[in-house]
């Protein structure tokens, strides 16, 4: 009897791989341009949101591996988002838990534009999960100026909120929303739709937080960066790895999301690393059980993706 049970237990599936990486940029790259879906800064704390057919629009990123030099496999869809969007409707009714109760009997919420500025919307970016497209209000996209319009309070006069100050006074700092409508809406978002947590970045309000794009934390001035996510494929035989900036949201539809689609011809390879060293490198010899590599821009842009690849978690000698 014991023998039978043990035999079945050995049909254990492959446990996948894990990538631990760090995306870092040179001084000339504005990390806001890495945000997906794309947004354009007006320079005064407000943003506009291009749409699919606009030039330069990037919807999301897709991480690919080349296997044996003969084919590719789509490893991961992901986004780069500001860790906190100051004006995201789903954060407008987060209680200010640290506020001293002044006995006024009112419910107090976080003021996302309080002085002094650690502007996490502008200066700190996260690598996060991508949610499927085309699933209606469960993934409304990230242009909340558009999708949250119906939830605005009739008394609201602010159209495009910012954290701009004039004479020390905040200007247009907050859109007024109807709390019940917002809470109802935000409670039914897809599990992979990212909303940052102002109290603890690593535990997002919604979605998956893989880590941070390399930068200085504007709150402390200390260097921060690095992320990690699992990959469900066995990467024993990879010969290249690359990131495609993809403009097409349909590639993340529920039908396509987990499909191993080939790289989109309309996409742009922004990072690439090959085992032959023609772009970046992939070192399979330096460490036992883990590989180390670097992706670089094939266009010479100042962006890099350095990573450690735990290619077989079952065999890895690091013992997770």
């Amino acid at each position: 009897m014991t023998l039978v049970i043990v035999t079945f237990s050995c049909n254990e599936p492959y446990h996948g791989s894990r990538i631990v990486g760090n995306i870092y940029t040179g001084g000339v790259i504005d990390q806001n341009t890495l945000v997906t879906p794309s947004r354009i800064s007006a320079g005064d704390g407000t943003y506009t949101y291009p749409v699919t057919d606009d030039a330069g629009y990037i919807d999301h990123y897709e991480l690919y591996a080349g296997i044996d030099g003969i084919g590719t496999v789509r490893l991961k869809n992901f986004l780069i988002r500001p860790v906190i969007e100051n004006h995201h409707p789903c954060l407008q009714f987060v209680r200010d838990e640290l506020r001293v109760d002044d006995g006024d009997g009112e419910e107090h919420f976080l003021n996302m534009c309080s002085y002094p500025f650690p502007d996490l919307n502008r200066d700190l970016y996260a690598v996060v999960s991508a949610a499927p497209s085309g699933i209606g209000t469960a993934n409304p996209g990230y242009n909340f100026l558009e999708w949250a319009f119906d939830m605005r309070d009739p008394e609201n006069t602010v159209l495009n909120p910012s954290c701009k100050t004039v004479g020390g006074e905040l200007q247009d700092n907050r859109i007024l929303y109807i709390k019940e409508a917002v809470n109802a809406y935000c409670s039914q978002l897809h599990k992979d739709y990212y909303i940052g947590n102002p109290y603890q970045l690593t535990a997002p309000v919604n979605g998956e937080f893989y880590g941070l794009v390399d930068n200085l934390d504007p709150r402390t001035g200390l260097a921060t960066g690095g992320f990690s996510f699992p990959v469900r494929y066995k990467l024993q035989d990879i010969t290249s790895i690359f990131v495609v900036a993809d403009p097409d949201p349909d590639r993340l539809s529920t039908e396509n999301f987990d499909e191993n689609l080939p790289p989109n011809p309309e996409g742009r390879i922004i990072l690439m690393g090959n085992s032959d060293g023609s772009f970046g490198y992939l070192d399979k010899d330096m460490f036992e059980g883990t590989w180390h590599g670097l992706m670089e821009s094939p266009y010479g842009e100042q962006i890099w993706f350095e990573y450690t690849l735990f290619y077989d978690l079952d065999e890895d000698s690091v013992y997770f």
């Binding site: 492959y14 296997i67 084919g71 590719t72 496999v73 494929y233 066995k234 191993n260």
Partner: peptide, 10 residues
């Protein structure tokens, strides 16, 4: 290999 199954490459 994907989760114990062999799937085709692109």
């Amino acid at each position: 290999e994907e989760n114990g199954t062999c799937v085709p490459l692109n």
